[in-house]
């Protein structure tokens, strides 16, 4: 696909807010129109830069949530308490506002058609964002690879993209999702209600014989646990790609 998405020096581009979507109480998806955007691969991220009137600058990195779509870049951002950048993005930005953005960034934690499938995605919390870009990309292709998502969240209310995931899993036979809600479960919940473990992943992921490509994203502890379990289940180290999200000062 677009090798331009993997190459070259990064330059700051002006991005205009065109849409805001409230995902959960503290999480919003912000869609930007970025003139000059060269396209991206699912899994890549961008840098955002805010400049105060006195010239002070703050920079953060966010995963791209949407499939490649002309000049549009969607970021899903959680407002981190006392954070320097994320509360501004989530609480202050309105349509028409402009910020600086550069990217796309990253070539390791990405899916390209040449990699094939099936695709096993394992998400902890907001680690779902780059994996959602992979799901949305797959669902936009004429011949998608079979895709399976294990999504861990604290509660149903805190699970981002839940309506879209529900709809996709109902309508598509090439996409499946398994949820685990670690802190609280809705009344009558019949999904998992605990942190990921070997039994849970063995029962809800592609078998070793299917040789899935595995992408794991989430907080560091979650990622290391999931990757270790997938290795223990017999998957090849080269087939497991990980990305750790952390408290970056928000």
């Amino acid at each position: 696909m677009e090798r331009t998405a993997l190459r070259g020096r990064l330059t700051w581009l002006e991005a205009e807010v065109v849409q805001l979507v409230q995902e959960t109480a503290r999480v919003k998806t912000i869609v930007f129109r970025v003139p000059g955007w060269t396209g991206h691969l699912p899994g890549q991220h961008v840098d955002i830069r805010l400049t105060a009137e006195d010239g002070y600058q703050a920079q953060r990195s966010y995963s791209i949530a949407n499939a490649n779509n002309n000049e549009h870049v969607a970021l899903t951002v959680e407002a981190v308490e006392n954070g320097e950048v994320s509360p501004y993005l989530v609480d202050e930005l309105v349509a028409g506002d402009r910020i600086e953005l550069r990217g796309p960034i990253g070539g390791y934690f990405v899916w390209e058609p040449s990699l094939g499938g099936p695709l096993q995605l394992i998400a902890g919390g907001s680690g779902l964002v780059p994996l959602m870009a992979m799901i949305r990309s797959q669902m936009s292709y004429a011949s998608p690879v079979r895709t399976n998502l294990v999504a861990s969240a604290r509660s149903w209310e805190e699970l981002i993209y839940r309506d879209e995931l529900e709809k996709l899993s109902r309508e598509r036979d090439d996409f499946d999702v398994v949820y685990t809600l670690t802190r609280s479960q809705p009344h009558g919940w019949n999904g998992y209600g605990r942190r990921i473990d070997k039994d849970l992943l063995a029962a809800s992921t592609f078998a070793v014989e299917e040789a899935p490509l595995i992408f794991v994203c989430g907080p560091t502890g979650f990622v290391e646990t999931a990757a270790a379990i997938m290795l223990e289940l017999g998957h090849q180290p080269g087939g497991i790609k990980t990305e750790r999200f952390g408290p970056s000062g928000g």
């Binding site: 990064l10 990195s61 960034i105 560091t220 502890g221 990305e243 750790r244 952390g246």
Partner: peptide
């Protein structure tokens, strides 16, 4: 502590610079 570190994905733009 394994909970305090990220990985090389997070320095993608630094490496690209």
């Amino acid at each position: 502590n394994s909970d305090t570190h990220l990985d090389g994905n997070s320095i993608g733009s630094l490496l690209q610079d």
